[in-house]
């Protein structure tokens, strides 16, 4: 497959030695791209490096002057101490369980809802879609008290249900994303499938979903990331120390009168790893979509 954006040269020359120049040019270009990448990567890596440096320092060394970008002596035991202080493993496991069910919920609801908005004509569609988008505008804080009352009345406090259930109704962000994605799929696909005898759901599940893998990947990775970083909802809905999630655990390093920055950074870094590992594997799935059709067809 050709790589359009990197673009070999305009027009392919049949002349042999011209091809060598093209190749040298190509090598230089690749090198140049790598150089750019490494520079930008460094820029993006600064926070991690800084966090690592902080995590390895003694508690008050962080505030020394002149500011020290490297610890005088790396204190790796901060990591052990962080995990001893707060049961981080347990919290990671709890969070993973919540994520698992949320992902199922999103994968169930999002494609269905999006499919209707992207492909069907029905009364109230425009208004309803505006409502999908507008729910994203409302900050969670405004909804906390009524939702909390509701969950207390249903006896769902201190369970994971308040965290998981909304995922089964589809998160507006993902619905919107998926609608935009499906809308870019040519209708010919649907028509062809309909002629083959598939009904609406068949079209969704057999034809469109396999093409939506990039959007679904984003749904999964973002669900993971957002749940991992969620603080307010677990705080409000969970009571038992054993059921807490990652972010609640991280907040435990912030004491009444001071913050143990080195331990907090050590714990934050460690808990970031799973997210990055997931993303490392998930981003391979960002390839696909309509672009693959050409290969198959």
């Amino acid at each position: 497959m050709s790589i359009p954006l990197k673009g070999q040269n305009k027009g392919i020359s049949p002349v042999f030695n011209k091809r060598i120049t093209v190749n040298i040019k190509h090598v230089i270009k690749t090198l140049f791209i790598h150089l750019c990448m490494i520079l930008i990567a460094f820029f993006f890596l600064v926070p991690i490096l800084w966090m690592l440096s902080t995590a390895l320092k003694l508690r008050w060394e962080i505030f020394a002057w002149p500011p020290e970008w490297l610890p005088r002596e790396p204190h790796w035991e901060n990591f052990r101490e962080a995990f001893k202080r707060v049961p981080m493993w347990g919290y990671m496991w709890n969070t993973l369980r919540i994520i698992f069910f949320k992902v199922i919920g999103e994968l169930f609801a999002v494609p269905l809802v999006a499919y209707a908005f992207a492909r069907f004509r029905f009364p109230g569609k425009k208004v309803l879609f505006l409502l999908v988008i507008s729910t994203m505008m409302i900050p969670l804080q405004t909804k906390l008290i009524p939702l909390f009352s509701m969950y207390v009345r249903f006896g769902l406090i201190d369970s994971y249900w308040p965290l998981i259930l909304p995922a089964f109704t589809g998160t507006p962000f993902f619905i919107f994303l998926m609608v935009q994605y499906i809308k870019t799929m040519p209708r010919d696909l649907d028509d062809a499938a309909r002629i083959d005898g598939l009904n609406n759901y068949g079209i969704l599940y057999r034809i469109l979903i396999p093409l939506c893998v990039p959007a679904l990947t984003i749904t999964v990775t973002y669900t993971f990331l957002w749940t991992w970083n969620e603080f307010l909802q677990p705080l409000i809905y969970l009571n038992s120390y054993e059921k807490y999630t990652i972010q609640l655990g991280l907040e435990m390093f912030k004491g009444m009168w001071s913050v143990e920055w080195n331990l907090l950074m050590a714990a934050t870094l460690s808990t970031m790893l799973p997210v990055l590992v997931l993303y490392f594997f998930a981003q391979k799935k960002l390839i696909g979509g309509i672009a693959t059709l050409g290969l198959k067809g």
Binding site: M1, S2, P4, L177, Q180, Y181, T184, M185, P214, A215, T217, I218, L286, I287, G288, G289, I290, A291, L293, G294
Partner: peptide, 8 residues
């Protein structure tokens, strides 16, 4: 993800 939807 959006770029993937452009047929090569």
């Amino acid at each position: 993800a959006g770029l993937q939807n452009i047929p090569p």
